[in-house]
Design a binder for these strands. Structure first.
Lengths: 255, 255
DNA sequence: CCAATACCAATGTTTGAACAAAGTATGGGA
DNA sequence: TCCCATACTTTGTTCAAACATTGGTATTGG
């Protein structure tokens, strides 16, 4: 029995929608809902306010609200039951189709011990491609992380460079966990989607040394931009895989 | 200006919905629409009747009809433009999340003219990896197809080898279409899922000549096994991409 | 004390209506 | 003939209202 009162006056004002905006109300409502369900409060299985309250909060009709609501249900972000209410859907653990892919978690699931045995972090001004991917102005300072990954008896498997616009590091941070988990907690955003680009490149001198291959060896290059639930970029990473030790597999489903 | 008259009386009767049924009207409407757009008549880019006519035909309100209509749009089965109308979406416009990916269709959607300018087909005994992927006994005869793909001014972009356990070719087959469509019709199975593997490999002499690159140039190698709805392999393909001319992009969603 | 029942709160369904915005066709003026 | 304003068709958006259905809770009767 969530009530309107369960949301502060300030939040409510922030959620009010603009009837004069060029963006249709249902789109605004969807955005507002994304913000709302991003809040920690509702990520605990707590029921959202009911449709009538929500629609009053946002100042739109129930139908308009429902359009937005149903889209989020379709995305799998909300779950609702007639007679009960609406709650944030627990993120279903991977295993899936077109789902990703924490390198670490995936390998651990197969009983492989993953190690990050080299690491470097520093602040740098974002280069043009990085800035573009993260949708930030060029020359902004971003946190850059370099990591070499390996497992079992094969130490050099992947070399990845991360770029983070918002992350601050603490000395005691646990880097064995997937990085985006760290970001999610620290910046209170949720990873949602990732845009991936794959190409093959020859190893340059820099990479060759770190992955211990000959210069010119073909590497699988993967650029990934992780978006949060508000579709803002929260991480950009470039990964190079040694293909004699790593094979990327995906399951795609026809839709 | 599609009119109600454009549909015969018999069809109209068949499409009438039952207000007393346990199935909600919008679901019935959806089913009726699926039937309707399955008709050859509308698979030619012909406009469907407008919403008002359709809703009258089905005996439901415009809103109810729209619910069904929008779901089909979301599925990619219909395309509509404000001020114009609704028509059956010709191909299966890829570009979805975790969806695939007809190379041809995807490029055509971007206004790029795709060409298959070299082709070779022959029956061979399946090698071990091929047999394994297709889950057939080794030494079975399979149809092998080699194709070089290109577009616009760039003739050599991808080289792919297909392996088909069940396909028989006819001389007049249209190879410009995605191959799996051909298979679907010929073998009356439906493609459902594809298992993909990506690695980077150096171009060997054979590939180098066909893609016009120097031996040793890194190529993106993609192995794909397409499964039908019964999860039986219906196609195995190995594709090599020139990465200076092609970039593979995917959108993955956390689920 | 337990079970059938009544009630309530929430989502689900359906309608009719009105206006907005986007594209197309038309017709008149330069 | 060409171009632009205009009217019209079609989808897009939004609302209010009513009732159905579902699931949980409180009440009542045995």
């Amino acid at each position: 029995m969530a009530s309107v009162r369960s949301i502060s006056r300030a939040s409510r004002r922030a959620l009010r929608l603009d009837h004069g905006s060029p963006l249709p109300l249902h789109a605004q409502a969807e955005r507002a809902l994304r913000t709302l369900i991003g809040r920690k409060k509702y990520r605990n299985g707590v029921l959202l306010p009911d449709e009538v309250s929500l629609s009053r909060m946002l100042g739109v009709s129930r139908n308009t609200l429902r359009a937005a609501l149903l889209r989020l249900v379709g995305e799998g972000r909300l779950e609702r039951k007639a007679g009960v209410g609406t709650r944030v859907a627990e993120p279903k653990l991977a295993s899936g189709v077109g789902a990703w892919h924490s390198f670490t978690r995936e390998m651990e699931g197969k009983g492989v011990r993953v190690e990050t045995y080299s690491l470097q972090a520093r602040w740098r001004t974002a280069s043009s491609p990085v800035a573009q991917a993260l949708k930030i102005p060029c020359r902004t300072k971003v946190l850059c992380l370099d990591r070499v990954r390996g497992w079992n008896t094969q130490p050099e498997v992947a070399f990845r460079s991360y770029f983070h616009p918002r992350l601050r590091l603490a000395p005691k941070d646990d880097f064995a966990r997937p990085l985006y988990e760290l970001i999610q907690e620290r910046c209170s955003v949720l990873a949602d989607e990732s845009l991936e680009e794959f190409t093959a490149v020859p190893a340059g001198r820099w990479l060759a040394r770190r992955l211990r291959v000959r210069v010119g060896t073909p590497l699988l290059r993967r650029e990934r931009t992780v978006l949060d639930t508000g579709r803002r970029p929260m991480e950009f990473a470039v990964v190079h895989y040694r293909c004699d030790r790593f094979k990327l597999t995906l399951t795609l489903r026809q839709k």
